[in-house]
C-alpha cells in the first residue's frame, strides 16, 4: 500500500493548466473570427439597448403592464401587474433605471442567442442518439463549471465590456434550454408521432405541426430557466466590465457599502421576478387553452 502511494506521489503534476492556456492562446490566433463575433454580439446588444432607451421610464412601465396583461390574460394577473408597477417605479425612484435597462439588454441578448443555438441543438439531440451521447456530458460540464472561470478566456477572446459578459452568460445558461427542448420533443407521445407520419408528414412537417407545438410548454420552461441563469450572471459578468445593476453590486462590495449593494440587489430581484412571470406566462397561456 505504502509503495503504491510512493509511486503515485512520484508522478509529476500533469501540466493541465499549461495545456489549457496553450489552447486558449491557440484560439486567440483566430482573432478575425472572434472580432467578427464580438461585432455581431455588439450589434445585437446595441440594437436592444437602443430600443429600450427609446422609451422614457414611465412609458416603458406602461408598456410592460400592457404586455403583462396580454400574456397573462387567462390567469389572475392583477397582482403581477401591481407588483410590476411598484417594482419598476422603485427602480426608477432609486435612479437605477439606466442600469436596469443595461442588465435587461444583457439578459435579453443572452436569451435570444441561447434560443437560436439551444432550440435547434435540443431538437438535434432528441433526434440523434449519437448527438445526444456527445452533447449531454458537454452540457453538464458547461453548467457545473464555476461561472467565474468562463470570464478568463472570454476576456482573452472578446476583450472587456458587455460582449464577453454575454458570451460567459450564454455558456452558463445554454444547457437548460437545450436539455428541455430535447426532453420536450422526446416526450411527444409515440402514437402522435406515428399519426403524423401515417398521414404523410415530412420530417419538417412533423417537427413544426406536431413536435414543436407539443413541446412548446417544456421549451418555454427551458427558456425561463436560461433567463434566470443569465440574470444570475450579471454580478459575475460585471467583474469584466459589463455595466448594469450587477456592476452596482460589484462596486458596493468594493466600497463595503451594504446599503447600496442591497438596493441594487433588490432591483435585480424585481427584474428577475418580472422576467420569470412573463416567460412562464407564455407557456401558461398555452396550458390554459388545453385545460379549459
Amino acid at each position: 500500500m505504502n509503495n503504491l502511494f510512493a509511486i503515485l506521489s512520484g508522478i509529476p503534476a500533469i501540466p493541465l493548466a499549461k495545456w489549457i492556456n496553450s489552447f486558449v492562446a491557440w484560439l486567440t490566433g483566430f482573432a478575425g473570427f472572434f472580432n467578427a463575433l464580438t461585432a455581431g454580439i455588439g450589434a445585437i446588444l446595441d440594437a436592444i439597448q437602443w430600443v429600450l432607451d427609446l422609451f422614457p421610464a414611465w412609458l416603458f412601465i406602461i408598456l410592460i403592464l400592457i404586455l403583462t396583461w396580454f400574456i397573462l390574460r387567462k390567469t389572475k394577473h392583477w397582482g403581477s401587474m401591481l407588483f410590476e408597477l411598484l417594482g419598476l417605479a422603485l427602480i426608477w425612484n432609486q435612479g437605477y433605471w439606466h442600469d436596469m435597462t443595461q442588465t435587461l439588454t444583457l439578459v435579453l441578448a443572452t436569451s435570444l442567442i441561447i434560443i437560436v443555438i439551444g432550440v435547434p441543438l435540443g431538437i438535434w439531440m432528441a433526434k440523434s442518439h449519437t448527438v445526444n451521447v456527445i452533447i449531454r456530458p458537454i452540457l453538464s460540464f458547461m453548467q457545473t463549471m464555476p461561472a467565474f472561470v468562463y470570464l478568463i478566456p472570454a476576456v482573452a477572446l472578446f476583450g472587456i465590456g458587455m460582449v464577453p459578459g454575454v458570451v460567459a452568460s450564454v455558456i452558463f445558461s445554454l444547457p437548460p434550454i437545450v436539455s428541455m427542448t430535447c426532453l420536450g420533443i422526446q416526450q411527444v407521445p409515440a402514437d402522435l408521432n406515428e399519426a403524423a407520419v401515417s398521414f404523410g408528414c415530412t420530417t419538417w412537417q412533423k417537427l413544426f405541426k406536431v413536435e414543436l407545438p407539443l413541446a412548446k410548454a417544456t421549451i418555454i420552461s427551458g427558456i425561463n430557466q436560461g433567463m434566470m441563469l443569465a440574470l444570475s450572471m450579471v454580478v459575475i459578468a460585471s467583474m469584466i466590465g459589463t455595466m448594469g445593476l450587477g456592476s452596482l453590486v460589484y462596486f458596493a462590495v468594493g466600497r463595503n457599502d451594504a446599503g447600496a449593494g442591497f438596493a441594487a440587489g433588490i432591483a435585480i430581484v424585481i427584474l428577475a421576478i418580472i422576467l420569470d412571470r412573463l416567460s412562464e406566462g407564455l407557456s401558461g397561456s398555452n396550458q390554459n387553452k388545453k385545460d379549459n
Partner: peptide
C-alpha cells in the same frame, strides 16, 4: 411513400392520437 400515406391509407389509433393543442 408520402403519396401512399396521404392518399391511399389512413390510420386510426388505439389511444386516438389526437393533437391536444
Amino acid at each position: 411513400l408520402l403519396e401512399l400515406r396521404r392518399k391511399k391509407m389512413s390510420m386510426v389509433f388505439q389511444d386516438f392520437a389526437l393533437l391536444p393543442n
